[in-house]
Design a protein around this nucleic acid. Structure first.
Lengths: 208, 208
DNA sequence: GGATATTAATCAAACGATTGATTAATTTTG
DNA sequence: CAAAATTAATCAATCGTTTGATTAATATCC
């Protein structure tokens, strides 16, 4: 029995996000979105103006509040290491909560076309990177962190998490997991956080 | 003055790779490839059968010999740490030598369609991951490496390098570089290698 | 409160443009 | 001259978008 959608507008957004994640923006036709959502084709343009309008709406709603969550951390009166650990946890939560959207975001980021979207994503990422940068330099200034290539430490944190959701699983027998399974997702998030926190704690607090 | 292409077949491959990297597979039309390469539209199908045939040929030629370079390292009579450092260097070279292709590869990997390509890329990556896995366990077996989450150490190595070529630059004033500039590319490769080797050396050789 | 506007939502059909592919004719090459 | 390479023209299919008409719900009026 099919559940009736309350709202066709939301149905279009849901279907489009699913399809964009699976087959990409160019690879998804408005007819597919129409069929998947149960809405008439014209409704897409009626509500969102264009196919790109749907895409922009999806990205905007997802990106909104991306940085705000992490910004609070930096204001807490805790050590740099504690801040770093919390940011790692927050970041891992964010990314692993919605792997398919994160994939789509990265795909869009690797295309230079659609500059509006590119810049939006870039700005959202930039916020997080600057926050991380500040935590690292603060820790280095008070002597609790070693000197390091901070830009690349950030690349390591973000890259590791992105790699987990992007790279194919089941390549190493040991690590046979499926991020669509809630239990596996929780497990991977905990592993990712533990790994990154351990890695960076050891690295940043070891004397040169 | 336009340089005459020796070979239209190669001209098509070159143009297609450039366009696929810039605007994606679906986002590139055969007419664009035709215009960019200077070849007639029909030549694409004449030489490669189809648009997908062009894509497959590009991926095959690039992926070929991807693992072979690294495989030799594991046979050398050197320490696990030395092997790890060489693999990092080899990997960084490979990825930063052709950032746009690496982007395209990852984009393709994040789409589940075109399973032939997906599996090809997956297998190529799988080889490298298994090699890295072996180096890590060998080092742990002989006591030179600490116990760790090896799957995620691999994610850190690959993810960090991928992040460098994918994530937008110029977000942190300090790190204003352009991978299209040979000098910047060399600089980033050296930085990436130094960072990863330092990070993992410290981490893997520090007692728990 | 019942008739009458006004609105938003939805639909099938069609639009012109573009897609990847193929044809048949022509040119180039060995 | 035969084979291979190249061309312009054309194909059916699909693309995103727009159209005019219809329904259902809401607001306005006397």
């Amino acid at each position: 029995m099919k559940i009736e959608k309350i709202d066709k507008k939301q149905a279009i957004l849901d279907a489009a996000e699913k399809l964009f994640c699976e087959t990409g923006y160019e690879g998804t036709s408005t007819r597919q979105i129409s069929k998947e959502s149960g809405a008439n084709m014209a409704m897409i343009n009626y509500y969102f103006g264009s196919k790109e309008g749907v895409f922009i709406e999806i990205m905007n709603s997802r990106i909104a509040g991306f940085g705000s969550q992490l910004k609070i951390i930096n204001e807490d009166k805790i050590s740099a290491m504690e801040k770093l650990n919390r940011v790692i946890d927050g970041y891992a939560n964010r990314i692993l909560a919605n792997p398919s959207f994160h994939k789509m975001m990265h795909r869009e980021l690797s295309l230079t076309q659609r500059p509006e979207m590119y810049n939006k994503i870039k700005d959202a990422m930039s916020q997080n990177m600057q926050l991380l940068e500040k935590i690292l330099t603060d820790g280095q200034d008070d002597g609790s962190f070693r000197e390091a290539d901070n830009r690349l430490i950030i690349a390591t944190i973000m890259g590791t998490l992105t790699n987990i959701v992007i790279s194919p699983n089941k390549v190493i027998p040991d690590s046979d997991f499926d991020l669509n399974v809630p239990k596996d997702k929780k497990m991977m998030k905990d592993r990712a956080v533990a790994h990154l926190q351990d890695l960076l704690t050891v690295y940043l607090t070891t004397k040169k």
